[in-house]
Amino acid sequence: MLAVTAPLLVGNTGARQDISVTVTDLRSAEGKVLACLTANAKAFPNCDKDPKALAMTVKAGTTVSFTFHDVKPGTYAISLLHDENGNGKADKALMIPKEGFGFSRDARVRMGPPKFSAAAFAVAAEPVHQRIRMRYLF
């Protein structure tokens, strides 16, 4: 198990909390797990569209743990990619992901990624823990 932390990249006031994430069911320890946290429904699951999103990259393992620190209160969603070949992007075959993926609240995939609302969770007065199962289609 690998534990990694990342500092908050955006500023705001209010009681901030940690969001710890445990990722299970990775099929190999090859490559990296790319994670992003966003409060922007329009930017989910591709956090590149949200300049305020928090992104993290950790070494893959059979189970991976990491923490987003000092997150302001609000509603967020997490998306994950098991980038097995380490090229920094989601590889696809006929528009279907060849690498693993996962979402907060363990939101399921049906004809495309889940909506923000299916993966959304609240950050308020207590630290948050998300357990996310990595899924593979190939």
Rank of each mutant, 00 (worst) to 15 (best):
Y136M: 06
V123A: 12
F68D: 02
A39F: 03
S65G: 07
P7D: 12
L54A: 13
A29T: 12
R110I: 07
D70H: 15
F101T: 02
R135L: 03
P113G: 02
F116C: 03
A124Q: 14
F44A: 10
C36I: 12
A77C: 09
A41I: 05
G11N: 15
L80K: 05
L34F: 13
N87D: 15
N12S: 15
A55L: 06
K115C: 00
T5R: 11
P97V: 09
F138T: 00
R105M: 14
G74W: 12
L37D: 03
I78L: 12
K42D: 13
E84K: 06
K89M: 08
P51I: 06
M1P: 07
N85A: 09
A122D: 14
A107R: 10
I78H: 12
D106L: 10
G14Y: 10
M134T: 02
L26M: 09
Q130R: 11
T5G: 12
V23T: 02
A39H: 11
G86F: 09
G102W: 07
V33W: 03
R105E: 10
R135N: 07
D91L: 05
R133F: 00
T13P: 00
L34N: 08
D48P: 00
K59M: 07
N46R: 10
S117M: 06
G102C: 04
I96F: 06
N40A: 14
F116Y: 14
